[in-house]
């Protein structure tokens, strides 16, 4: 388990981290969310010793992280970095050996990942000759080549086309299913909601909301209701107990209401008012939780 505990970091006048704490479990994916400048990259760098925090600790399985632990981590920084003139396969093998693999194992793994990522055909090209998307794949492979226990990716989905997003998702899922802890930052909240078990939302250097996505949504104090009737607008909703707000969209009403409201009774009311054409009752989306948390 990765644990960041009370990380603090100042750069002169700027506070980058202000008591940032969260944990990431093996076998699950954690979406690390936050507005720009909230401290996501600084936190991730702290895991690799690239930023030395002024206070706080970063541990892996309750041990202080040193070089031996980092060899079993994989990192994809936000500012992608590869040797432009080095061939993709040699580059991957090199990073494999830097993580303690033997030459042979590193080569085999490099070929495997290039194959998986669909680049086996042109793996002998220098990286600078590859397209942006393919460079991105090689960058991902650098993080994966040594089969890490902890995978930390800074904005891995940025700049990917829908197919690329699909591939990236599948690979991250398979790593987590294989027992690795996967942490990635993203601004694509719907995507994170789809694929992550856990999230941590950071704002101004401090984690303001963290935990299992399902549970966080269940624990939210409000619910969303969308309702439409065949015969006219369902204006009865405004008079229900526990309603916070009602928005109209044609004959449809978008309602925010107390989580404690008995939805069975609401449905019964609706049936009395007319025949139901559309009825969605759900907990708030991750986007809504996010907006709430960083407001």
């Amino acid at each position: 388990m990765l644990r960041l505990d009370g990380l603090a970091k100042r750069y002169g006048e700027v506070t980058a981290l202000d008591g940032c704490s969260f944990t990431a479990e093996r076998g699950s994916m954690l979406g690390f969310l936050g507005p720009n400048g909230a401290g996501k990259t600084t936190s991730m760098r702290a895991v690799f010793g690239l930023t030395v925090p002024d206070a706080g600790t970063v541990t892996w399985d309750d041990r202080q992280i040193g070089l031996p632990e980092r060899l079993r981590f994989g990192y994809m920084p936000e500012s992608r970095g590869l040797y432009p003139k080095m061939k993709a396969d040699e580059q991957l093998a090199y990073f494999g050996t830097l993580h303690g693999m033997t030459e042979a194992a590193a080569r085999a793994s490099a070929d495997h990942w290039l194959e998986v990522l669909g680049r086996a055909g042109r793996s002998g090209d220098p990286v600078e000759k590859l397209s942006h998307g393919n460079q991105q794949r090689v960058q991902l492979a650098v993080a994966l080549v040594h089969d890490p226990e902890l995978l930390i990716l800074d904005e891995p989905f940025s700049g990917l086309d829908p197919l690329g997003v699909e591939t990236m998702t599948a690979i991250l899922r398979s790593r987590a299913a294989g027992g690795a802890a996967v942490v990635f930052s993203s601004h694509q909240l719907d995507l994170v909601e789809d694929i992550c078990e856990d999230v941590a939302i950071i704002n101004r250097g401090r984690v303001v909301l963290a935990g299992n996505v399902r549970k966080l949504k269940d624990a939210a104090p409000v619910r969303r209701l969308e309702i439409e009737l065949a015969n006219g607008a369902p204006d009865f909703v405004a008079s229900l107990a526990g309603v916070h707000s009602v928005k109209a969209a044609g004959n449809r009403r978008l309602v925010t209401l107390d989580a404690a409201t008995d939805i069975g009774r609401v449905m019964a009311e609706a049936q009395r008012a007319g025949s139901i054409r559309h009825f969605i009752y759900t907990s708030p989306s991750l986007s809504e939780l996010f907006m709430q948390a960083v407001a």
Binding site: R45, F48, G49, L50, L67, R70, L71, F73, Y75, P77, S79, R80, G81, L82, Y83, P84, F95, L98, H99, V142
Partner: peptide
């Protein structure tokens, strides 16, 4: 310049 240093320093001193 090509930022590879950030990847390198994750495993090298």
């Amino acid at each position: 310049t090509n930022r590879v240093v950030e990847v390198l320093l994750a495993t090298l001193k």
